[in-house]
Nucleic acid binder design. Sequence first.
DNA 1: AAGCAATTTGAGTGATCGCTCAATACTTGA
DNA 2: TCAAGTATTGAGCGATCACTCAAATTGCTT
Lengths: 198, 198
Amino acid sequence: MTRARPYDRDVALNAAMQLFWRKGYHATSLKDLEAALKMKPGSIYAAFQSKEALYLASLERYYHSTCESLQTKIAEAGSPLAGLAEFLRGFGMARENPNDYNVCMVVKSMIDATAEDAKIGEIAREYLDLMSDEFAAIFQQAQDLGELDSDADISYLARRYQMNLTALRFEAQRGGTDATLAKLAEEMAHDVEKLRVA
Amino acid sequence: MTRARPYDRDVALNAAMQLFWRKGYHATSLKDLEAALKMKPGSIYAAFQSKEALYLASLERYYHSTCESLQTKIAEAGSPLAGLAEFLRGFGMARENPNDYNVCMVVKSMIDATAEDAKIGEIAREYLDLMSDEFAAIFQQAQDLGELDSDADISYLARRYQMNLTALRFEAQRGGTDATLAKLAEEMAHDVEKLRVA
DNA sequence: AAGCAATTTGAGTGATCGCTCAATACTTGA
DNA sequence: TCAAGTATTGAGCGATCACTCAAATTGCTT
């Protein structure tokens, strides 16, 4: 029994994520999703319940892939502080599609959410908090490893790091020259590295 | 001749601005606008051409009122640097409607704009540049007055100020306690005031 | 090969979208 | 007082919105 699905759920979800990330929740229509997922409306609803549920699933996927890419950077860099610095530098690099995939999807979601989409705003805020916690855990790791001064204010550093990241990615979306953006990223990365104890 | 308009164009535009600011371009419908402006569709189109044109007019109004409020702060504070610091503090104050009118409308516009609304994105970027220029002019004033070191990098300070402001207002929209927000604003304001030559 | 169950299909649902325009209401000059 | 001229009105336009469901298609089991 059971007919095999002709589509790969993970591939479809990824396509939805990219489309929602680029256009936002309100400006993305079912027609757009049908084209991007290569699925008919019925299949989309069978697989994902509703447009809102699909958006939330996309947001979850985005959150996890962001965490993953941050952890990868840390592993590559060889230390928590170096990883955080490298993560910033990554957003200062020349972009394939300027003004497309720069601002964090969670940030966009929170800003776009209206009282009518209360759930989206609420969940976006939860992910922002989880991301804050993630940064705090990394600074804590740095402290445990002796990379960071023992009386550093972890949660303050995490919040400021998150704010810098948000501002940097916004600047990337804004446009301007790649050199300027790279310089901003470099300065922020340098600020993180300066936290390393001598 | 000429029948008098029963509505005040300026009042209507202000209502449109607040509605668009809160809900964004895509999530705001003509029905919403009719209710907010207390105007029928025909009158709205006679007065403002189209939904997009009304949005752009709202954005222009927003930009000018922001500039005005910044200039007021500077006049009240008695000096450019003190004014910039006070402007930041203003966004750290307890808010009547948390999560409503915090993120800058120009910032929201740029983030929300899609390839289909190219004009909105383009104009939002122009206003961002004008705001950058405005901040730069104020730092320049500070320098001319001897308030700021003569070898300070004006355009760098302006850009960083704008980024801090954007990040702060985003944090205000995000929520959290008023005390934390006030502390963030205070720190940023203090950073500006530290630029004052001894 | 036949039957069953899971799945896709896509035309079509009512609602709402941005927007228009013939009809109506109002103000003013003569 | 009333014709001229300007503005508002709001029903309704075609298009699109998110979404549904009866019918067709498919793969698996027997």
